[in-house]
Amino acid sequence: MVVRLCGVTKKYGRVEALRGVDLEIPCGQVVGLLGPNGAGKSTLLRILAGMCFPSTGTVEVLGGPPRRHRARIAFLPEPGCLLPWMTPPQVERLARGLFPDFQVQRFRELLEFLEVPARPAGTLSRGERQRLELALITSRNADLYLLDEPLGGVDLVSRRRILQGLIRTWRSEATTIISTHEVHEAEGLFERVVFLNQGRVVLDEMAENLRAQGRSVAETFMEVFS
C-alpha cells in the first residue's frame, strides 16, 4: 500500500474538514478524488503531502509518516507553487536545486508539448500557468503524485493538454491522486474514484465497475452530489 489512512479527522478550530476517513491505495493506481468545493479534497491531499497533520487518526505514506518520504512525493498545491516573476528557465533552476529526482530533459520536452510561453508566471493565463506547474511536478521521478485541482478554472484546450501531459509522463510504478470537479474530461484517466462529501468518503469504486453498471463517472458524480 502506498497510502494508508486510518480514521483521519482534521479540525480547523471548530470546523471539521475531514471526519474519520479510511482509505488504502495500492501502488500504481490513478485515483480521482472527487467532490464539491469544501468536501475536504484539498485537506486530504495536504495531509498526504505532509503539509499538515491529522487531528486524530493515522497517516502512512510509502510506509511512514509523509514528511519522512517527502523526497518521493510530488505535490501540486491548489494555489500553485510559483511566484509571479518566475520564468520557465527560472522554474527549472529552482526545481533542479530543490529536487534531486528532477529530470531537466523531460521538463523541457513537456514545456514544448504543453506549449508554455517563455514568460514570467505572473503574465501567463491561468491555463498556461497551470501547464507550467504541471510540467514542473511531472518532471520529477516521484513515487506518489498528488495533484490538487490541476484542471480547475482553465479552458477546455488547456484541460485536454494537461491530461495528455499526464498520460505522456505516466509511469506504471507511480501512484497518482488527482482532485478535481471537472469530471468529464478526466473521466477516462481514473482507474478508481473516491467521492468525498463534507469530510467523508461517500463512495469508493473502480471506474470500470461504475461504467459496467451503465453509469459514467460523471453521471455518478451528479447522482451522489445532487
Binding site: 485536454r160 495528455q164 498520460i167 505522456r168 505516466w170 506504471s172 477516462g188 484517466l189 482507474e191
Partner: peptide
C-alpha cells in the same frame, strides 16, 4: 499503448 491512451485521453492501464 501510450499513443492510444494519449489520443483518447484514457489511462494507459485501460
Amino acid at each position: 499503448v501510450r499513443e492510444l491512451a494519449e489520443s483518447m485521453g484514457v489511462n494507459p492501464n485501460t
